[in-house]
Amino acid sequence: MHFRAGQTRATSANLAAMPHDHDHDHPHTLLPPEPALRVRALETILTEKGLIDPAALDEIIETYQHKIGPQNGAKVVARIWSDPTFRKGMLDEPMPLLEELEFYGRQGEHMVIVENTPEVHNVVVCTLCSCYPWPLLGIPPGWYKSDAYRSRVVREPRKVLAEFGVDVPDDKKVRVWDSTAEVRYLVVPERPEGTEGMDEDALAALVTRDSMIGTGLALRPEA
């Protein structure tokens, strides 16, 4: 989050004072029961305190609804498929290239690009919360944050992938990346057959969000 050393009040003293395991002490229980009203109540209080600008909330929502999303990741994948020098750079040291493309920012500070091949299928999860590469894929979809995905894809990835319609042959390795730190992973799906000679824009249109998480494959042309 927006945090710099020396700028926080999260000291050991006041964090130690945070009640951890006493349900009745949790301040959130003072908010209205209905979630939409809970958001409105918090927004009202914080606005009255001078701590929230409602127009800033509109701007954040606009950003993640319309400006930052999987179209960014798709451009990167299409270029990796098309440009061997870019591909090598992205696999070796992606951050300077991503900064240059302006696909940098919150929840994308430390990217690692993993490539699917005929031998390996990669899939990404965050079992502990919902870590996800925001600058390249936007805000994660509901299923990515669901208990079922978080609990199961590490233990039985092949069954979960089948629920997405992806069947991985037995002799192909499945590698599940559990995002337990601030490193974020982007999967480069295998380039579909029949795409020789297509330009980057046409290729990007084949790259789905799920294919960059690993729960999908890139689309075939004319599919």
């Binding site: 958001v39 509901g142 299923w143 199961r152 997405f164």
Partner: peptide, 29 residues
């Protein structure tokens, strides 16, 4: 919860960025 049993199938159709307006507001807040 990694590895836990009992959660049932994943629902790929639950794929909206913000399924409800208040979800977006909660994230922004």
């Amino acid at each position: 919860m990694g590895g836990r049993y009992g959660d049932g199938a994943v629902n790929p159709a639950d794929n909206a960025t913000f399924a409800q307006d208040w979800h977006a507001r909660a994230l922004a807040l």
